[in-house]
Nucleic acid binder design. Structure first.
Lengths: 235, 235
DNA sequence: AATGACCAAGTGATCAGATCACTTTCGTTC
DNA sequence: GAACGAAAGTGATCTGATCACTTGGTCATT
């Protein structure tokens, strides 16, 4: 339809954005590295400052670059990603939120299974670190931190699959509407059970047992969904 | 870290972008509707034109709005989405591309199973339409069009699940690097087999057989992967 | 009356240069 | 050696103008 063949009239902005990405790639800059000043880019590409800024804003929106006031332009955290969470995602309806959790419950179990087959070393250590941190936060009673670390565990799990695209997908669905997801997860609530389940999943992945890892992850997420559905039906 | 608590110093641009989204929501504008001119927005929010444009570029990058030269600002196709394909995705390495297909092979089968349970009417019709179109394109020999329609089928299948988030995820992984995906799929190649497999999946969904729909979708995607892997190992 | 060419208004695209606000660095001072 | 502060570098925003594209209507032609 819209992407069908034909000469696409590339605007100056399209070229600019592409050129800047190419420049970053050429210099082999990585996330966090400083790029170039707005003025310098304007000179380099022979365009005006506002034009450069528009192009940068576009790149910024997808996490390709970051503009830090008074400091400079930096390579962003999401450069080179295929799938992104919408940074402009609206506050979701409760239906939409449940859909989001359902999506996670569908996607993450097979990802866990793959993780148990691949067992990426670095990610396994991250999972372990997340679990340790979670235990400490339960002890210290910092529930806000805890909720975030629990989300981290799911992301680390996905990274253990060794498939960057899957990790991006899981990252996306665990980042969008985090605030609301954490709220609804808070309803679910049993922190110790959560930790135990996470530990069991970690153990299954570590043991290289795909079926078990998948089943545990499914039960973990379905359990949350079940509680939520109950609460919503009879408040 | 960066998202941890504390007063986030919202820049003028953040406010602007949020305000414009709110304005669109207030007016209940839908995708494709005309919004407001840049100058008018500048007046309304008491900011300069370049500032409005930066904010619009940010919204544009995530598909929330569209700027059409000489015509106006319109509400974009991706407004309200949670997960997005990166419009700036770089040309992938062959490894990355295989990862992408693996991700699809992992995600889409359970989505097909859900689709067979839910069977969203509109999406079923879209699937049927896609199949008809594919058959015609095979006959007419328009292989470029055909490849696109085949991708459409996968998207329609995801929509039949009735879960918008899942549909967005599948849409994302079928849109990023389409060009390259289509190329690699072209290697795979047997167009008639593809159509037959799609038809079988459609039938399984229509019949409300989740296990079958899942198995067929898995075999379909795994089949593609197997062929690709073979070709890459012994060129 | 239907059709086509053409013109004008509205709107986005881009430019130029200037000023303000924030960060960082480095020399100065205690 | 540490705390302070000034200056340089850089992003943020403004002003106002000109160019380029789209669109709707006018008007002459048929």
């Amino acid at each position: 339809m819209s992407t069908s063949g034909g000469v696409v009239r590339r605007s100056l902005l399209d070229d600019l954005a592409a050129s800047m990405l190419a420049l970053i790639a050429d210099r082999k800059l990585a996330s966090g590295d400083q790029f170039e000043s707005v003025r310098s880019l304007a000179d380099r590409f022979k365009v005006a400052v506002p034009t450069v800024r528009e192009a940068l804003r576009r790149l910024e929106a997808t996490g390709a670059v970051e503009l830090r006031h008074g400091s400079g332009v930096y390579v962003g955290p999401h450069i080179g990603r295929l799938v992104l969470p919408n940074p402009l995602a609206p506050t979701p309806s409760s239906d939409r939120l449940i859909e989001l959790l359902q999506a996670r419950a569908l996607i993450e179990p097979p990802v866990a299974a793959l993780a148990a087959r691949v067992r990426t070393e670095a990610a396994l250590q991250r999972m372990d670190r997340d679990l340790t941190a979670a235990a400490e936060l339960i002890a210290s009673g910092d529930h806000a931190q805890l909720a975030e670390v629990n989300m981290d565990f799911h992301r680390s799990l996905a990274q253990a699959s060794g498939n960057a695209t899957l990790a991006e997908v899981v990252e996306s669905v665990t980042v969008v509407n985090v605030r609301e997801q954490l709220e609804i997860l808070h309803i679910h609530g049993d922190r110790q059970t959560d930790l135990d389940e996470h530990r069991a999943i970690h153990a299954a992945v570590l043991a290289g047992d795909p079926e078990l890892a998948e089943r545990l992850t499914r039960e973990h997420l379905d359990g949350v969904l079940a509680v939520i559905n109950d609460r919503l039906q009879q408040p």
